[in-house]
Design a binder for these strands. Structure first.
Lengths: 200, 200
DNA sequence: ACCTGAACAGACAGGTCTGTCTGGAGACCG
DNA sequence: CGGTCTCCAGACAGACCTGTCTGTTCAGGT
């Protein structure tokens, strides 16, 4: 049980919060342990007793990022009524973060680019990618398209591309292009699914 | 004039070749100067007299990468006859690199993710992005679509997404999805352009 | 009142990185 | 044949990074 908190939160939570900000803003490789513990107001020994090594702190950071993204997406999608609207809504929810002044692109893309070795990053990234893939696939199945797997793969590409363009070009209006693109692709797939359904 | 080459090439060229391999494979931040000069068979002082600092070596690496990509794309596009086929052909040429065992994603995405600060990376990346953008825009104008700028922005997103998916998921078959996606988008834009042309 | 245990502060070792500097070897030119 | 120029080899300084370790402080349980 944690005691002696400076504020109400545990040392582990403060470390995770500090790591979340610094790692995302400046990169997991660039930011050293000292910066993290300084911002968290925590002793170095506490960090190492809580996480073991830096790699595990990075893993925890990515897991938290994954959970937060998932949560935000699910919360953002409830306002859409049909599977078709939810498929397109994924891109609208994604694009909300583009206008955030602290937006620095996809955390998993950044971490993967920095840490070529390191199983922690690879595993956390694989988990995240599997979730994105299944999010699109489940919605595509719900929408009744002819080939949900193919549509999901295409939408993942769109999702990745929107994030990269918005980040690298510092251009939040990539959202407009990605939403219109997604709308066209989804509607075409649904139309094809309907005609295939009629035929069979 | 350079003398005392180990082989026929100049020290600068050997440095650039070594940096090109190592930076792309393992990242500009991860790879140290010592690794580069060791592979190039060159003294440290020679590197610093040729490039000044590591940042300029990275800039030269990205410029070379940019030139090579541009060259490969132009050479790959000549076999396509119409602007429509060339627009789609961009994705086919891009996807050729996906199956390369050494494929590690877009070098500019990687470098940008690693080096948050550093004007060299930002400038070289901006140059590259401008080229990709203009490649699509010029072809879209040639193809006579109604709104070349919008189509170009959408295709850039597709281009980015295909590269990211192929890299992060280690899945070269992203090429299939991106080419079919590009075909649909381009043909829809051309059809819209034709009907708009008829109307006016 | 005492003990346990978590947390803080910071020194420390061992390694890596960039960038500079010295010394020497070989090639070309006058 | 001497001067100059390019290059190699490697030591070096100064900074930074990870991870360990010591000592202290403080809260809570018994």
């Amino acid at each position: 049980m944690p005691t002696k908190q400076t504020d109400g939160t545990s040392a582990r939570a403060r470390l995770l919060a500090a790591a979340g900000e610094l790692f995302y803003e400046e990169g997991v490789h660039t930011v050293g342990i000292d910066r993290v513990i300084e911002r968290a107001g925590v002793a170095k020994a506490t960090l190492y007793s809580a996480f073991g090594c830096k790699d595990e702190l990075i893993r925890a950071y990515l897991k938290a990022r994954h959970a937060a993204t998932q949560e935000r997406m699910m919360r953002g999608l409830v306002r859409f009524d049909t599977p078709r609207d939810r498929l397109i809504g994924v891109f609208e929810v994604q694009s909300l973060s583009f206008t955030d002044p602290g937006f620095r692109g996809c955390a998993f893309v950044g971490a993967s680019a920095e840490a070529s070795s390191g199983t922690a990053v690879q595993e956390a990234t694989a988990d995240y990618r599997a979730w994105v893939q299944s999010l699109f696939r489940d919605l595509a199945v719900e929408a009744g398209v002819a080939d949900p797997a193919t549509l999901a793969r295409q939408l993942v590409i769109l999702y990745d591309g929107a994030g990269i363009s918005a980040w690298i070009d510092r251009d939040p209006t990539a959202a407009i292009a990605s939403v219109s693109l997604a709308t066209a692709v989804v509607d075409a797939a649904i139309a094809a699914g309907r005609s295939a359904g009629q035929r069979s």
